[in-house]
């Protein structure tokens, strides 16, 4: 593995930087028309994928999984043991989730997910990652100062709670199962799912207690 890909590919990157159009939108337009001309792309398929990730696949799926786990101890056990099989029961199998793991928040443990080396994310359950998840700031800071990062999102993790940071360095993907908030006894899955936020399933939020007057 000593071949110098970095030298060869770095040179190609610099050449592309010098010659491609100056704006991202123009670069994307040029790429699309080239791929169509080369017979590698049907623009209607691009439209279909955009619709999937705008309308269908997003954090609502993850929220449904969490709410079901809160409501059904047998499903929760299957989810923690073999998450890909459990989410397939709901038809949620898909991108970057074939080696999904669900990690559970408890009164003593808080989990936070990051990918320091790129931007790995369980797309099939959470959809398109927020931009902040992909930034250098989040990737640099989450492993080193998770409590500071969570505080920036507005919550303080008590000192006695152990923070576990999951750095997605392989093809395993992580989804945080937040704790079911008190005061939700008897709620159905749909009502519970409405409480579960994307950030809670990444771990940058912890407390999902319903607020008086809603939020």
């Amino acid at each position: 593995m000593s071949e110098d890909h970095a030298g060869r590919m770095g040179a190609i990157h610099r050449e592309l930087h010098s010659h491609l159009p100056p704006e991202p939108a123009l670069r994307v337009k040029a790429l699309e028309s080239l791929l169509v001309e080369k017979g590698l792309l049907d623009p209607r398929t691009v439209d279909a994928w955009i619709e999937v990730y705008t309308e269908e696949i997003g954090p609502k799926r993850g929220a449904e999984v969490v709410a079901r786990a809160w409501s059904d101890p047998a499903f929760k056990a299957r989810l923690l043991e073999d998450a890909p099989s459990a989410i397939a029961e709901l038809g949620f199998q898909g991108w970057a989730s074939g080696h999904l793991n669900v990690v559970e928040n408890t009164p003593a443990i808080h989990n936070l997910v990051v990918c320091t080396l790129c931007s790995c994310y369980p797309h099939a359950l959470l959809g398109i990652p927020p931009n902040w998840y992909k930034t250098a700031a989040y990737r640099a800071r989450a492993v080193r100062d998770p409590r500071g990062v969570i505080a920036e999102f507005g919550e303080v993790v008590p000192d006695e709670v152990e923070v576990r940071v999951w750095d997605s360095t392989a093809e395993l993907r992580y989804l945080v199962m937040p704790a079911r908030p008190p005061g939700t006894e008897g709620w159905d899955v749909a009502r519970l799912a409405a409480l579960v936020t994307r950030n809670a399933m990444i771990g940058t939020a912890r407390d999902l207690a319903p607020r008086v007057g809603g939020r």
């Binding site: 790429l31 994928w49 955009i50 930034t135």
Partner: peptide
């Protein structure tokens, strides 16, 4: 590295070209 943009809008894409590129990559 500085603060995190915690007020980012919730929409999956923040520009039309971002959605287009994601669609191209999948297709």
């Amino acid at each position: 590295y500085g603060p995190i943009d915690v007020g980012e809008p919730p929409e999956p894409f923040h520009a039309a070209w971002e959605a287009r590129l994601l669609g191209i990559v999948r297709a």
